[in-house]
């Protein structure tokens, strides 16, 4: 409406009329960008459905996504219970990983000596397949939530430690000199510069850590639990109920995406200064 009245009152310069399609094109572009993740997901499902139907793959090998969705609905009560358990163990393990990871990362990042001492141990520990650790945890804590929580913790704390330590250790030497010449203590430097500076690194690591935490908890559930999506999938596959197995996978993926997005939002909100330029 406003544009119309402008053109009626005074002849708009031709340049104005030319850039309208551009603005429109950019709006369309933005809309496509927003829709892209949904389109790609739907595309994947369509492709999957098509291939299974085209080659007539038996359900006990690979169910179609539609069969899997039907299974999600059919077993919704069981899935709800198991998913809640998995979410609980994952978040509990993740929470411990955050606390422990930040503390250890701060320690490792603020002292060269501690870094040298701890680094090989950390790398060695991280290289151990966590599936090998689960039986040990079961021996110690029995079957149930505890091994799942601990596995989620063990698998997800490493990226947090590394990133927090990196953020702290990569302080510009000039800035350190400026602060030291003012008489700043190590603690001053850590509080005023180190921690704020490490914050984007920390949040970036959370996104990696939360998805790893799901890997850990589901892994432990498949081996040593009678609750959780991991257990549900194991018991379903032993009954050749492949649609339910895939339903479990989809639920895990959905929870992973949701939690990732939560971390992403928190990251953007708390470290705006580190994301300048990309809106």
């Amino acid at each position: 409406m406003a544009e119309e009245s402008i053109t009626r009152d005074a002849p708009a310069p031709p340049a104005r009329r030319d850039d309208r399609p551009l603005v429109k094109r950019m709006a369309t572009h933005r809309r496509t960008q927003k829709a892209a993740p949904y389109l790609s997901t739907i595309g994947l499902f369509v492709l999957w459905e098509g291939i299974v139907r085209l080659f007539d793959v038996p359900t006990y090998i690979l169910p179609t996504p539609s069969e899997s969705f039907v299974a999600v609905w059919e077993y919704r009560d069981a899935i709800w219970m198991h998913a809640a358990q998995t979410l609980y163990t994952t978040l509990a393990g993740f929470a411990i990983a955050v606390v422990f990871g930040v503390l250890l990362g701060a320690l490792v990042g603020s002292s060269r000596a501690i870094y040298d001492a701890v680094n090989p141990l950390l790398i060695g520990f991280n290289s151990i397949p966590k599936v090998a650790v689960v039986p040990i945890l079961v021996m110690w804590f029995g079957i149930g939530s505890v091994p799942a929580i601990l596995t989620a913790f063990l698998i997800s704390f490493f990226p947090i430690v590394v990133n927090v330590a990196t953020g702290l250790a990569t302080l510009e030497p000039e800035l350190r000199d400026v602060l030291r010449s003012l008489g700043a203590t190590r603690r001053d430097i850590l509080v005023k510069v180190g921690f704020p500076r490490a914050l984007p690194y920390f949040f970036a690591s959370l996104k990696v850590a939360i998805t790893l935490a799901f890997v850990g908890s589901v892994l432990a559930e498949t081996v040593a639990s009678n609750l959780g999506v991991g257990y549900l999938m194991m018991s379903a596959s032993s009954k050749f109920n492949m649609p339910l197995v895939f339903a479990g996978l989809m639920v895990i993926a959905a929870m992973g995406i949701a939690m990732y997005e939560v971390c992403n939002r928190i990251e953007r909100r708390s470290t705006k200064w580190a994301h300048r330029g990309d809106q």
Partner: peptide, 12 residues
């Protein structure tokens, strides 16, 4: 007081 080539102002 010190100042270097890199301004090292804190972005936050």
């Amino acid at each position: 007081g010190m100042a270097f080539q890199a301004s090292t102002l804190l972005p936050w």
